[in-house]
């Protein structure tokens, strides 16, 4: 039993005021130990993008203007955006597909709610676990960026916390959205949302490329703020706007937690 308890100890009690929700993280980590290879697929995708687009297209694009009148290679420009995207992907896959399975098929939460845990604990625990998965993806990606020399500013030490914030925001909204899903076909909508977010959130080129109306639309979407925040940090262009991006993600996450808690209560505690 001692080895069984091991993954559990990496979660400090009271993390983010999780309350009893951390018990669900213990459960999820126990399951994850058995399928440790699953997250690898999630890491592979942004890494492939970084190698193919960053390095391949980077050859065609050449050096581009960077901070403080310097120039940077294209990969250094794209990498923070891909970091933001991987933090989003990890969080969304966990908080949509996996949460839906636990909610509708495995009936995990029905059992959980007959113990002292409450709906809000279920929401917080599952969102925190999805956040962990997103963070795990992001950490590996940050390590790769460091190895490839894509972290050009000391501000980059905040890139991982920023990625965690992105994961939090998307985990929370992902779980809230999952409580409204009527069947597996609804998950096509998740893809329909994620793909344009990934492509248009100034991932591959700056906002100024777009006409004004499209700029305004992009500025309303969450991944744009995530990409902008991470890029500001890794390139060392930190200004008041960065605080605004962070605030957007915090608000989004808090709304997600509140809605997810309420919906779990409505669905399971009628």
């Amino acid at each position: 039993m001692s080895s069984r308890a091991l993954p559990v100890r990496v979660v400090p009690p009271g993390m983010f005021g999780l309350g009893r929700g951390r018990r669900l993280i213990e459960r999820d980590l126990l399951v994850a130990r058995r399928v440790w290879w699953v997250p690898l697929s999630g890491i592979a995708e942004p890494v492939f993008y970084l190698l193919s687009i960053g390095i391949g297209i980077g050859k065609l694009v050449g050096r581009i203007p960077g901070p403080h009148h310097t120039t940077i290679v294209y990969a250094t420009y794209v990498a923070p955006a891909l970091l933001a995207a991987s933090a989003m992907n990890g969080a969304v896959y966990e908080s949509t597909f996996n949460v839906y399975f636990k909610l509708k098929y495995a009936k995990i939460f029905d059992a959980v709610l007959s113990t002292p845990l409450e709906a809000v604990d279920v929401a917080r625990g599952e969102i925190a676990y999805a956040l962990l998965r997103g963070t795990f993806y992001a950490a590996i990606f940050v390590a790769m960026m460091a190895a490839l020399g894509d972290l050009v500013s000391v501000w980059a030490v905040l890139a991982l916390p920023a990625a965690m914030l992105i994961s939090f925001a998307f985990s929370a909204v992902g779980m809230a959205a999952t409580t409204y899903m009527r069947g597996w076909t609804d998950f096509d909508l998740v893809q329909l949302v994620l793909l344009p977010l990934f492509l248009f959130s100034t991932t591959f080129y700056p906002l100024s490329t777009y006409p004004r109306w499209l700029q305004l639309a992009v500025e309303c979407t969450p991944l744009f703020h995530g990409v902008s925040l991470v890029r500001a940090l890794t390139l060392g262009q930190v200004g008041p706007a960065a605080a605004g991006h962070a605030a957007y993600l915090v608000v989004m996450g808090v709304i997600g937690v509140v809605v997810a808690s309420r919906r779990v209560r409505v669905l399971l505690l009628e």
Binding site: M1, R4, A5, R20, R23, E26, R27, L30, V31, R34, A106, K107, I108, D110, A111, V112, T115, P116, L117
Partner: peptide, 23 residues
């Protein structure tokens, strides 16, 4: 509504943890 992703023992363990029972 057992946890089908866990073993028999783990089911008891995880459920016990929901009640904050020391390991």
């Amino acid at each position: 509504n057992l946890d089908l992703e866990l073993t028999v023992r783990e089911n008891l363990y995880v459920y016990g943890r929901y009640f904050d029972i020391p390991r």
